[in-house]
Computed example of a mutant assay.
Amino acid sequence: MRARDMDRVRARTLLDAAYEEGQLGADEYHDRSDRAGTAKTIGQLRGLVADLQAPAGVAAWSEPPAPNPRHRLGRYPHHIRARDEDRDLACRALDAALADGQLSSEEHQTLTALTAEAKTLGDLAGLTDDLQQPAPAPIDPRQRIRPRGAWFAAALIVVAVLAAVGGFQLTHHSAPPTPTAAPAAKAVQPLVIDTPDLTTAAGFDKFRTLYRTKFGDTVVDELTLFSDYASVQRTWRDQPNRVVDYTFRGGFALGGAVTTRDRTKPFFDLAAVNVAALGDLLTRAPALTKVEGGAVSHLGMEIDSSDDVPMIRIFVGNKFNESGFLEATPAGQLVRAYPFDN
């Protein structure tokens, strides 16, 4: 279920209080607080506060009610065709989710475009199932109007109390309170979070594991790996004629582009990549491309458009803008090298 801005604020408030009580050290606090600020789901926020005691004076973590996708579909099953009215309702839900921080502008743009292409109620449900629905604003009960006599009696009592307090202050003087020193602030150390280099064999292996966890498979249309982020294209749910962009920076986020895809195009399966052989190629790439002082800048994985076979390309560069690249199979067999030509 998607997290709203108010959910992130609640989680960070708990973390602030837990830090003040000593439940978290400085590094843990900053790590969790940063992750809470960028969390996409309620589950991610739950994981950041689940092991905390409820700090004094702060409400314990509670989750919003889970969405009910079946209720949203009404009495019709998923395969029933969607109307324009149904698409409009889905767009309104996406607009509300954008307004309260459940979606970024890029995600909203992508999902709105997919809503326009949705054919069935099931397609629409898949776009909004993880959204929290805005609750109606509570209506404050009207105050009961007191009789005029009751108001007059209450006013007399207030006047009498104020007069008594004023007289006491005129005849009694208390010593000013002794100032106390403010508690010393806790030293906050800067946090450095290590991220795997995705242009290494270990980095790719980690990415592949996270990708499988996120999407339930290992197929892509195209994948480009840089040292600290990745760009990936894959089909959207059960629509093989649509391809969607994702970016990866420790987690996956929808990009802003939705494009048409050739249904007959084969997929690149990341599971077919031999990690050990890939690591060997990455190590030898600077020498094979004859780039002096070079290092791997990025690598790409896709189906080669000329003969529809899976291809890995490893790009090498140096500070002089000299570059070359290798082409290899997922098994790690070198197909050809394109060395720097000076």
Rank of each mutant, 00 (worst) to 15 (best):
F315Y: 15
P64Q: 11
F320R: 13
G25F: 03
S227F: 00
P183N: 14
G25W: 07
L24C: 11
T195K: 11
T38R: 15
A125G: 05
L299Y: 13
G293L: 10
H108I: 03
A328C: 09
P330F: 03
A153T: 04
G324S: 02
A90L: 08
D16E: 11
K206C: 00
I145D: 12
P330G: 08
A331G: 13
A3L: 06
P77D: 13
N274Y: 03
H79G: 05
P183Y: 13
V161P: 02
A66I: 08
P67C: 08
A36M: 07
V273F: 01
P77G: 12
M301C: 13
P55R: 09
D34F: 09
G216K: 09
G22Y: 12
G216T: 09
A337T: 15
D245H: 13
S227V: 01
T209I: 04
R261N: 04
V161D: 07
I42Q: 08
E28S: 15
L103Q: 09
S231C: 00
G279K: 04
R32A: 10
F315E: 01
H298K: 15
S33R: 15
F226D: 05
T247W: 01
R237T: 06
L124W: 03
A135W: 08
L162C: 14
L15C: 11
Q133G: 03
N274L: 07
F168G: 07
T41R: 13
M1A: 10
G43T: 12
L210P: 00
A154I: 04
T264S: 14
R70Q: 14
D307L: 08
E21N: 10
P286D: 02
G126T: 08
I303W: 02
A154T: 07
H71T: 14
L48E: 02
L326R: 01
L270I: 05
G300M: 11
R87K: 15
A3T: 03
H79R: 12
T171M: 04
T199M: 05
V219H: 09
T195D: 02
R70D: 14
N68F: 07
R81L: 14
L162M: 14
D205E: 15
I193M: 10
A99C: 04
A175F: 03
L334S: 07
